[in-house]
């Protein structure tokens, strides 16, 4: 394989990755997973021995559900919806970075104001950041679509 065809092959592979979308039905699967995650969050107190494990599973199910919704194809998918989706990912990424930088200080400040002494400073967890970014992406995507 010569250099040119190697580059072409690589480009083709990257394009396939960029164009990857799940079928529309995954939107529903995603919604079901999000509902299951909420159910797990609510029932975990009924099982104190395995509450932490249920919480962990619930968080993973929640993120997978949001990922399915985010990656699934629209009923009417065209170049404009693809452009709007790309915009929403860019916005979510930027807001996510700002959130990750600012939020720990806000939480720290608020907890110090509410309880004297407050909590120790702690960074955001992956679940908090990922769910925030997904929610921002989905929110912006559907808002942009509504106002197109």
């Amino acid at each position: 394989m010569n250099k040119k065809s190697l580059i072409e092959c690589e480009r083709h592979r990257i394009q396939k990755l960029i164009d990857f979308r799940l079928p529309t039905v995954f939107k529903w699967w995603g919604a079901i997973l999000v509902v299951i995650a909420f159910v797990l969050f609510f029932v975990r107190n009924q099982f104190p021995d395995s509450a932490e494990m249920i919480r962990g599973i619930g968080r993973k199910v929640f993120i997978i559900g949001l990922l399915c919704i985010s990656l699934s194809r629209d009923k009417e998918e065209d170049e404009m919806t693809i452009a709007l989706r790309a915009q929403s990912y860019a916005i979510a990424f930027i807001i996510g970075v700002l959130y990750a930088l600012i939020m720990p200080y806000v939480e720290f400040g608020v907890s110090n104001v509410v309880h004297s002494g407050g909590e120790a400073y702690k960074d955001l967890g992956d679940f908090q950041l990922l769910s925030f970014m997904f929610l921002i992406q989905l929110g912006f995507y559907y808002t942009l679509k509504r106002f197109r």
Binding site: E76, E79, M80, R148
Partner: peptide, 8 residues
């Protein structure tokens, strides 16, 4: 494409 795209 969708009707909304034509509108936009």
């Amino acid at each position: 494409v969708s009707r909304q795209t034509i509108n936009s």
